[in-house]
C-alpha cells in the first residue's frame, strides 16, 4: 500500500485515495472545433508510461481534493505531490 503525501493533509495511506489518470492531459476548451483524431486522443489514448508519470489522485476519504502526484509506475516511488492549482514543473 502506497504512502502518499497529500499537500493538504500530509502522509496518508493509499486506501484513502482514488486514482484519476494522467495529469498532463488537458481537456479541450468548451465550444471549440476539434478534429475527431484530437478528441479521440483526449478521451481514449494514454501513453501508459513505464517510469516517472504525473498523475491525478483524489483524496477521497480525506480533504476530497484532487492532487497531482509524480510516481514511478514501475517501482511506485513517489517523487513529488502538488495541489491541483500548482503547475507541473
Amino acid at each position: 500500500m502506497l504512502h502518499i503525501k497529500c499537500p493538504h493533509c500530509g502522509m496518508r495511506s493509499q486506501n484513502e485515495f482514488s486514482y484519476g489518470g494522467d495529469a498532463t492531459v488537458k481537456r479541450p476548451e468548451l465550444g471549440k472545433e476539434i478534429s475527431d483524431q484530437d478528441w479521440n486522443n483526449f478521451v481514449y489514448n494514454r501513453k501508459s508510461l513505464r517510469g516517472k508519470h504525473w498523475e491525478l489522485w483524489q483524496h477521497l476519504s480525506g480533504c476530497r481534493q484532487w492532487i497531482k502526484i509524480q510516481r514511478d509506475t514501475a517501482t511506485h516511488e513517489i517523487f513529488k505531490t502538488l495541489k491541483a492549482n500548482e503547475e507541473i514543473s
Binding site: 484519476g20 491525478l56 483524489q58 476530497r64 484532487w66 491541483a84
Partner: peptide
C-alpha cells in the same frame, strides 16, 4: 460528486 469536484478543481478552477 467526485465528477463535479474533478471539473471544478482540475478542469475549470
Amino acid at each position: 460528486l467526485s465528477h463535479l469536484e474533478y471539473y471544478l478543481q482540475i478542469v475549470w478552477p
